[in-house]
Each structure stands twice: as C-alpha cells, then as structure tokens.
Design a binder for these strands. Structure first.
Length: 422
DNA sequence: AGACATGATTTCTG
DNA sequence: CAGAAATCATGTCT
C-alpha cells in the first residue's frame, strides 16, 4: 500500500494538464480502453520510481525492459516537451547572439596584416605599407623588409598551428559531448535542440580561447610593426651622396637655406629620401650651423670651392662643346675663371686656420676675384650665397624664409635645378 | 666605453 | 602650419 501515494503523486505531476500525453498515449495504445491505459502508465512510473532501489543487474534488466516498453516513446516525448518548455524557453531567447564585435575586429586586423587569410604577399604588402609610412624606401631597407616578412610569417605559422590545434580540440570535445548526450538521450530526455544548445555553449567557451589566441597574435604583429616602423630605432645615416647633395644645396643657398616645396621634392628624389626627411635635414642643419658656424666653416669652404670649380668646369665644357676647335673669348674667360677658382680652392686649403678665425675672408675674396673675371653672373650669384652674412644679428637668416626665392633665376650652380654635382 | 655625429621627434612660437 | 629649439635615440669613430 505504500507505493500507491507515490504512484498517484507521480501520476498527478507527470500527466495532469498535459495535452500532448493523451495523443502520445493514444498513438501507442490504440484499441485499449482508459482503464488499461491508466494501468500501463502506473506500471511504467512505478518501475521508474523503484529502479534506484534495485541492484545494478536488476536495474539494467529493468532499464532494458523499460526501453522496450511500448509506452516508452510516448512518455519520453512528453518529458522532452516538458523540459523544452520549462528550461529552453527560459534561456532560448537570449542565446541567439550576433557575432562578437571584438572577435570580428581581431579577424579584420589579422586579415589586414596578412596573418589570417591567403598567404601570398600578405606580409610583404604590410611591410611595403610600413615602409611607405616611414618613407625609407632605400636599398638599405630590403634587409629589414625580409626580416619583417620572416618574422610575420613566423607569427602567421604559429597562429595557424595554434588555430588548427584549437579547432581540433574544439571539434573533438564537441563530438565527445554530442556522443555522450546522444548516448544519454536514450535514458533521459535530451532533445536535439538541447544538444545543439550544448554545442553552442561549448563553442562559446572555446571562442574565448580563440579570442585570446587572436588577441595575442595581434599584439605580436603590432609589436613587430611598431619596431619596424619606429624610425628612431632604425635610424640610418643618409648615404654620402645624399649628404653631399643636401650640403651642396645648403651651402649654395646659405643666405637663405629654405628650399621650396618643389626644391625639397627634387632633393628628396635625388637623395632617395622623403620630403619630410629633407625638411628634417635642413631644420637640423640650419640650427646646427647657426649654433656653431666656426665648426661648419671648413665644410662651407669645401662646398663653396667645389661648387665653384664644378660650375666653371661645366661652363668651360659647355663652351668647348660649342666650338671645340677654336676657343672663343667665352671659353677663354671660362678658362681664366677655372684657374681663378682652382687658385681659390688651393688658397682655401692653405688659409684654413685663418679662414676659421675670419669666416668672411674667403667669401669676400671669392667675390672679389670672381668679379675680376669679368662676368658669369650665375657663378657670382652662387658665390654670394656662400656668405655667412646671411645670418643676422638676431640669430636668424637675413632673408625671410620665403621658399620662392630659392628657385629664383639667380639660383646657384649647386642647386638641384642646375645639376652640376656628382 | 665614451664622445661625438646625426636623423627623428617633440614642444613651442609667430 | 612651417620653422626654431630642445631633446631623444641611434650610428660611428676613437
């Protein structure tokens, strides 16, 4: 008699008010009357309730019997339905979430950096972009490019290996859990929907690992990139030729060493550096020259002489080309000028110590001598620009930094527009 | 290793 | 915003 209340209780909880059950039961018990059905259910429930009191073997046997019972599918479906309605309806709605924006951002970043996505050219494209950003596109950078590419592909390799491992682990675990749930679904009410939900939970848990992986990969790429892009860290001295071109321009425009934008571009092209590098160079040069004129005097003299010699030799060459066999008066003038300048150059070398004491000396001499040669306004104009008198008492250059003036028709021979250097 | 040179960056100014 | 000035960080020389 003590089993009756349990049975009744279970009956009440499990069946009452469940419309689907009648249908299920009808499906499974076609042709039997109501009393018979009640008896069936009572049997089943009683067996279920007492199953834990039995020994393992007995329980296994009973389980098997229950599984084979004709009412089992109906009862199982009812339990599934109840579970679905009570559990899944509560959580179901909030689980439909859009893809994580942060994960999307990381994905995009990795794709842009060439870590994710197709292999070919990804790294080099980023490297090229990085190089373009720094402006250093010289031959010196090729080694660093390959270094960058190598490191990036290393990161890429690690990322893909880890991602593969992660996917494998995720799949293995998901399969394992699915198998387990499928197995269990024979003995407890687990609907396919619930399995699906469990899979999505697993994927969500795993996606946090994926996020970590992607995040650290992004960090690694960023560090690599910042190192590659950090110009200060990878500062390289300009090559000798570039320095000479810049110095020639500087000293031949000493009265107003402010190249125009066009001149800067031209210089940049000639030196294989960027316009901003040219600007930096001139900024540094002006300030350092101004701070210590004496120190730069020797350099100024050298470039003055060199430019003058170069200018005259070009002039002479040009004249000879016009009349190679019979030197005319212009050619003679050029020759005279060349000799004068050679003399000047030698005297610069000999009088260097004195020149340093009196920076104006050679400039005035130069101007005087050139004026005596009777012409070559271009060369004269050029020589005038060597004068350190350009710096006024306020510490600034006399001429206002008006870029247009440097490209004026009186431009010196060392200018980028009249390419007599190198 | 230390001094100096030099390219780049930062801060300030007109 | 260009340039001056100060400063940083690295390269080069001794």
């Amino acid at each position: 008699m003590d089993e009756q209340p349990r049975l009744m209780h279970s009956h009440g909880v499990g069946m009452a008010g469940h419309p689907g059950l009648a249908q299920h039961m009808q499906d499974g018990t076609a042709g039997t009357d109501g009393e018979g059905r009640k008896q069936d259910i009572g049997d089943i429930l009683q067996q279920i309730m007492t199953i834990t009191d039995q020994s393992l073997d007995e329980a296994q046997a009973r389980k098997h019997a229950l599984n084979c019972h004709r009412m089992k599918p109906a009862l199982f479906n009812v339990l599934c339905e109840i579970k679905e309605k009570t559990v899944l309806s509560i959580r179901g709605a909030q689980e439909e979430e859009p893809p994580d924006p942060q994960l999307m951002r990381l994905d995009n970043m990795l794709l842009a950096e060439g870590v994710a996505g197709p292999e070919k050219g990804g790294g080099s494209a980023a490297a090229a972009a990085a190089a373009a950003a720094t402006g250093g596109i010289g031959a010196d950078n090729s080694a660093e490019h390959s270094d960058y590419r190598a490191k990036l592909s290393q990161i890429r390799q690690i990322y893909h290996t880890e991602l593969e491992k992660y996917e494998q682990a995720c799949n293995e675990f998901t399969t394992h859990v699915m198998n387990l749930l499928r197995e269990q679904s024979r003995t407890r009410p687990i609907s396919p929907k619930e399995i699906e939900r469990m899979v999505s939970i697993i994927h969500r848990k795993f996606s946090s690992i994926q996020m970590q992986l992607k995040q650290s990969t992004c960090e690694a790429v960023m560090i690599l990139r910042s190192r590659f892009l950090d110009a200060r860290r990878k500062r390289r001295n300009f090559n000798k030729q570039a320095t000479e071109i810049l110095n020639e321009y500087f000293y031949s425009h000493l009265s107003n060493p402010y190249p125009s934008e066009e001149a800067k571009e031209e210089l940049a092209k000639k030196c294989s550096i960027t316009v901003s590098q040219v600007s930096n160079w001139f900024g540094n040069k002006r300030i350092r020259y101004k701070k210590n004129i004496g120190k730069f005097q020797e350099e100024a003299n050298m470039y003055a002489a060199r430019t003058a010699v170069s200018a005259t030799s070009v002039s002479a060459h040009g004249s000879q080309a016009n009349s190679p066999s019979t030197p005319n008066s212009a050619a003679a003038k050029s020759f005279r000028f060349t000799v004068c300048n050679l003399f000047l150059f030698m005297s610069f070398c000999l009088t260097r110590p004195f020149v340093c004491v009196s920076p104006l000396f050679q400039v005035d001499t130069l101007r005087h001598v050139i004026s005596q040669t009777g012409g070559y306004s271009d060369s004269l104009a050029a020589s005038q620009m060597y004068s350190p008198q350009g710096i006024n008492t306020n510490g600034g250059w006399q001429d206002a930094p008006t870029p247009s003036s440097v490209t004026s028709p009186t431009e010196g021979p060392g200018s980028v527009h009249s390419d007599t250097s190198n």
